[in-house]
Every structure is written in structure tokens, then in C-alpha cells.
Design a binder for these strands. Structure first.
Lengths: 223, 223
DNA sequence: TTAAAACTTAATAATATCTTAATGTTAGCT
DNA sequence: AGCTAACATTAAGATATTATTAAGTTTTAA
């Protein structure tokens, strides 16, 4: 899952970034409204965390503008203000949730997970296909009763495949959601990771879950 | 474990604070109802100690309001009143326990431990994995029959890992529960403490209990 | 007030993960 | 079947993360 943090306080932004990376997100940062709006429009994110008080363009305007352009990525607004009117304005402007500063990271995390679940129409937190189970919150994966140990990137890719189970996902979609902005997409990394994932997820099992769709991409499904 | 004290008498608040810090808690303080309510909503605590007579917003109202917002953190109410009606009102409003002033610190401590145990659904007070035993009440730790001497922070971290055994906990989660919220989350303190914990807990034992989950955090388990 | 203990920071070493690139294999087309 | 492009696999090099140490700072307790 890929997140954009639009926040001018560098330190806060970095703390949130660190926490989200630990949770397995790919994270991009913007430090003013203009940069944020640009990135939000040109890249594809699963979530946007948006501060209200920002240089150049105010957060509420960024939000309004993105919604006008039909960008539906879930937005969580961060605000130092606590009065009811501000909260209402935030939501009127098209945000999906808000959180007042200062906040505990756990709180932020819980809300992001809720937003993601909602936007994927998922009620459960555990992703599964056949006897494979992946828990993005606890960071665990198992097939049958065999625990699968995965590196961060392997985990993200498997999670992405599972969130789109029964659909073909292209290599480009994978790189866009698993890597951040600084990544040079012209390589065979995805193939390499899929190979190691297969070793860990499918090796030794009769029913191979990860399929290649020649010329298109990969797919995970029950068959 | 992290506690919020909402109490306007500075001196009392500080005494409780000091006692709890000695017990290994991370402590935040609020000196009126409004501040308290705000912190309780925006941060994540394991316990709240709440005075009734408070400036700005009354303690009972704070409690009611938190419960309305589905915040389930255990609340212990402090009150100078001793009549039965007051106690009843306190509990009706969603508090978990009450204590009348003046009180002995030991009494407060015992009740807090009881609340914590209840909220963690633990019938036993001793946390253990394999041959490692940690007693949060007595503040002792031993592995096999070797007594382990730990500093307060070391103890808190080990306790936190044990309360979440078999789960990965991130560095961010650890800092949020072990330090109070003025803490600079972008340092490697946690790593340093884990190193010393390993020296004390795992050194000399074949079965290493503290594991690193690269890119995510740490985990303690039986294996 | 002072000494000891505990905590924090920062630098360097060790290690795991990621990335690239080369080579081998398979699928789809003529 | 043979050819080509796409995919799979491997392993070595680059990078990032974690471990460890030691020195500085703060806190605690006598």
C-alpha cells in the first residue's frame, strides 16, 4: 500500500513516515500544498494524509481540488484545530476522516486501516485465498499451518496480490503500489520477487496460487 | 504501560506521577478537564486516573464523554466525596473503579494493577515465555532460576514485548508505550535497549527469545 | 553536592534485503 | 518445428537496516 503524506512539519512527517514504513507502507512525502497536490494528481496512492495548515496551498483547498478532479483516494485530514466547525468543514470538503494533533501513532494507524478496509470494501482484516492467510496488521502470513516468513517487499507484493485476488495485476501496478516515488521502474525486480514468493508460498504445495498471465502480469486465486 | 493523570492539585498529581514512574509507567499529566479530555482522545493510554473536581470540565463529564466516544481505556476515578451516591454515579458514568482521597499509594497501585490485569484479560499476573518469567507487580524478572536485574526502561520494554508475545511490535509501538509523548521518535534508543536486554535475557542461553523482524520490529516468542 | 546509575546520542561494524544483470526456460506465434 | 519475446532463475554487488560500542548527558539517591 502506498501513502502520500502532505505535511510541512518535517519532523512530524518523518515520524509518521517511519511508523508507516514499519507497517509495510510505501511512503511519499510532500512539504507544501502545491507539491502535495501535484503528487496526488500524478501518482497513484492508496491513501493520503493531509495537513490543513500548509504553505502555498491550504490543505482544505488541496482536498477540494482533488475531489473536483474526481480523484477518490481516501484522505485523512490532520488538523491542530479542535472546534467542531473545523471538523465539519474538513469532511464537507471531501475528506474521509480527520485526526487532531497531537495524536498517537496507534490512533493514526487504526484510522488508516479502517479507511483502507472501507475503500476496498473489506470487512475483514485478514486476507485469504484457499489455505493462504495474510494479516497485514500483525504482519504474518501462513499457508495451512506452515508459517511463512517474508521480507518487507515480499510481504507488500503478496498483500497487493491478495487485495486484488482473482484479478490480473500488471507489473506496473505492482511497482506503483509497492515502491515509492524514487523508484526506477525499468527493471525485472517484480519478476525476481515473484520468484522468491513462489518459493515461499507455493513450493511444496500442489495447488499453485500465484499464476502468470503471459503478456499481462500476475494473478492470485483459488482456481 | 502508559498512564494519564487528570488532576488539578499539582502536588498530588506529581506524587502519583513519581510513584508510577518508579513502577515503570510512562506518565502524562493534565491539570484540568478540558486538557485531560483532549489528551485522552488523541493519545493512547493503558489507564486513566481521573479526579472528579476539576477546572473547566468536571471529571464525571470527561468520563461520560470518553465512553460516548467509544474510548474504552480503563478509568480509575479519584474523589474526595465518600457517600454511596457519588460512588454509584462514578461507576454509572463508565468508570472502572474509584478511590477516595486521601489514599495510600500502595492502594492506588494495587487497584491500577487489577484494572490492567482485567483489561488485558489476564488472570495471572506473571508474564512468561519459555523459561523467562516477568512479574509486573513485583517488578522482577528471571530466566530459569537466574534472576535478571533490569533498569526501569529495560523492564518496560520487556514487559511490553511479553504482553504482545508472538506478535511483531514495531519500534514506534514500543516508543509510544514506554516513553511519554514528548519523546523524539527518530532515534535508535529502542535498538540500544534491545541490545542490552538481549545481553541480560538471552546471553548464555541457546534458545534466543528476542527476535528481530527485519524492516518491521521485534518479537518475543517460544519459537 | 557529588557519585553512581540510567538514559540518549552518534559513530562504526555486521548483516539482511534489495537490485541488477546475465543466463536459462517457457509460451505463443508463423 | 523453429523463432522470438516474455518470463524464470540465479548469484553477485549495492544499499539499507540493525547491532554494538562508547562517550556524553541527565537523573537519581546518598
Amino acid at each position: 500500500m502506498r501513502v502520500l503524506i502532505i505535511e510541512d512539519e518535517r519532523k512530524l512527517s518523518n515520524i509518521v513516515r517511519k511508523g508507516l514504513i514499519e507497517e509495510g507502507f510505501a511512503v511519499d512525502q510532500a512539504f507544501d500544498g502545491e507539491e502535495g497536490q501535484y503528487l496526488a494528481e500524478s501518482e497513484s496512492y492508496d491513501l493520503i494524509i493531509l495537513d490543513v495548515m500548509l504553505p502555498k496551498i491550504n490543505g482544505l483547498d488541496v482536498c477540494r481540488s482533488l475531489r473536483n478532479k474526481k480523484i477518490t483516494t481516501p484522505i485523512l485530514i490532520l488538523t491542530a484545530k479542535t472546534t467542531v466547525e473545523d471538523k465539519v468543514e474538513g469532511l464537507n470538503v471531501g475528506a474521509d476522516d480527520y485526526l487532531t494533533k497531537p495524536f498517537a501513532f496507534t490512533e493514526l494507524k487504526a484510522r488508516l486501516q479502517a479507511l483502507l478496509r472501507r475503500s476496498h470494501n473489506q470487512t475483514q482484516t485478514i486476507l485469504q485465498v484457499d489455505d493462504l492467510e495474510v494479516d497485514p496488521v500483525k504482519h504474518t502470513a501462513k499457508r495451512g499451518n506452515k508459517i511463512i516468513s517474508l521480507t518487507p517487499k515480499e510481504f507488500s507484493i503478496l498483500e497487493f496480490l491478495l487485495r486484488h485476488q482473482n484479478e490480473v495485476v500488471t507489473r506496473t501496478q505492482i511497482t506503483e503500489h509497492v515502491w515509492d516515488y524514487n523508484f526506477d521502474a525499468l527493471s525485472n525486480v517484480v519478476d525476481v520477487f515473484v520468484a522468491t514468493l513462489r518459493k515461499k508460498v507455493d513450493f511444496g504445495f500442489k495447488n499453485k496460487l500465484i499464476q502468470t498471465i503471459h503478456g499481462v502480469g500476475y494473478k492470485i486465486n483459488k482456481k
